[in-house]
């Protein structure tokens, strides 16, 4: 299976690998997938509380090349977005950007799930 150059670049030089302090109130963490399924994604966002903008995003992913590239791309896209903008990221945007083959579309779905789950975690933490 030949992957696109963009995908390979994200795989070889993943952006924003790391861990944010999940105890912090302005950090939302999404952990999706399962080891039995062959992919687990953890995506974290840190929100600037004054502007409501995502100022940092980090990921760690256990999975195939497409899963790693999808999460790396997602973190890049998240930075600088508002929560509402972030929530509108669609998995098909990732599919198109990375030219994912059909058997790898689930990797992009997982990335979208991870974004939504991180947002939900942030919102629950900050619910008044």
């Amino acid at each position: 299976m030949a992957y696109s150059d963009k995908l390979l670049d994200h795989f070889k030089h993943p952006k924003n690998v790391g861990t944010l302090d999940k105890a912090k109130k302005n950090v939302g963490t999404g952990l999706v997938g399962a080891p039995e399924c062959g992919d687990v994604m953890r995506l974290q966002i840190e929100i600037d509380e004054e502007s409501g903008i995502i100022k940092d995003a980090k990921f760690k992913t256990f999975g195939c090349g497409s899963a790693i590239a999808s999460s790396s791309l997602a973190t890049e896209w998240l930075k600088g977005k508002t929560i509402n903008e972030a929530a509108s990221i669609d998995n098909m945007d990732i599919v198109e950007e990375l030219e994912l083959p059909p058997v790898k579309i689930h990797c992009s779905v997982l990335a979208e799930d991870a974004i939504k789950s991180a947002i939900k975690d942030y919102q629950e933490k900050n619910a008044k």
Partner: peptide, 10 residues
Amino acid sequence: HMRSLSPIWE
């Protein structure tokens, strides 16, 4: 390398 990316390794 892959472990440095892996949340379950962490």
